[in-house]
């Protein structure tokens, strides 16, 4: 929506002073406000981390201050929560879903953008219509479908319903349509068929959007909560999200009530790191349309 212009807009200081840098007390004031707000935003994360770094019996002594440092709670959460296994499951599913969504989106977007075939508008409308259907409406039946395929408690069950996305198709079609006609004609002169044009010309041109879609798909898959809950009954096949639910429900004794808290921190870390690395794709992906969020 807004990112393409965002980078072009110059933010350099101008002489007319609408963004003059405040000085003295006014500047201090701004930092104080920013600092207080930042503290409030981070407060849940801060207290969670602090609590997970103490033995359970000491958590409430000074809930806001670090003290009696230990990593034992994290170790317990890792083994009791089986987080290694669940992180692996989530990774497998998210990687498969992302890869397949990129491929299916690219090829169907290509067909809608560059090929001529009967009933094109109708089919495109049908694709878009699927965007209107909330996932919560279809999962009751999808659970039965997956059950009858024998895919409960399996990677297929977790991944297959999400291997294609109308959102991705729509997004990639939009950027394909911006490729100048002359490029396609030049490609044909050089004897490039559709496949050659797609892989050698079109995909390199749309790489930024493709990156944004990849991150968006990965996050959506990783964060799924309801679906894995519906089709997972065997402990081994939990994802991180449903695993956290189990760890929290296992209610360890009062002395160790902060074990699920440590598990939550561990579960949050990989995505925090991924997002740090792919910040730019994130902004692009979210502004392009988190419509299916």
């Amino acid at each position: 929506m807004a990112t393409s212009t965002a980078r072009r807009t110059s933010r350099a200081h101008t002489s007319i002073g609408i963004d003059h840098v405040p000085r003295g007390w006014r500047m201090v004031g701004r930092y104080v406000v920013l600092g207080v707000v930042a503290f409030l935003v981070l407060f849940p994360v801060y207290t969670t981390v602090i609590a997970a770094l103490k033995p359970g019996s000491k958590v409430l002594d000074h809930p806001l201050l670090p003290g009696s440092f230990t990593l034992q709670v994290f170790r317990d959460a890792w083994t009791e929560g089986r987080l290694g296994r669940y992180l692996w499951n989530s990774t497998v599913v998210a990687v498969v879903v992302t890869t397949c969504q990129l491929v299916t989106s690219l090829i169907s977007a290509y067909a809608f953008a560059f090929l001529r075939f009967p009933l094109k508008t109708f089919f495109f409308g049908l694709f878009l219509a699927t965007l209107l259907v909330p996932i919560e409406t279809t999962l009751v039946i999808n659970r039965r479908t997956v059950d009858s395929l024998g895919w409960l408690n399996s990677y297929q069950g977790l991944a297959v319903p999400f291997l294609a996305t109308a959102f991705g198709t729509f997004l990639m079609r939009q950027v394909f349509l911006q490729i100048p006609k002359e490029l396609r004609e030049a490609g044909q002169m050089d004897g490039l068929g559709h496949w050659g044009f797609l892989t050698e010309v079109a995909i390199p041109l749309v790489r930024p959007t493709l990156g944004a879609l990849a991150l968006f798909s990965f996050l959506s898959s990783w964060n799924q909560y309801l679906w894995p809950n519906l089709i997972t009954t065997e402990e081994n096949m939990n994802t991180v999200q449903t695993g956290l639910r189990l760890l929290n429900a296992s209610v360890p004794d009062i002395e160790r009530f902060n074990v699920p808290i440590a598990g939550t921190v561990i579960a949050a870390l990989p995505i925090a790191i991924v997002l740090m690395v792919f910040q730019r794709q994130l902004v692009r992906g979210l502004t392009a349309g988190a419509v299916k969020g």
Partner: peptide, 23 residues
Amino acid sequence: DAVLALVMLGPSAVILVAFVLYP
């Protein structure tokens, strides 16, 4: 072109029909 479109739309169409429109 029409045949190619069928091939290219096929995978998405199968998934979307089976897991969105049919349900």
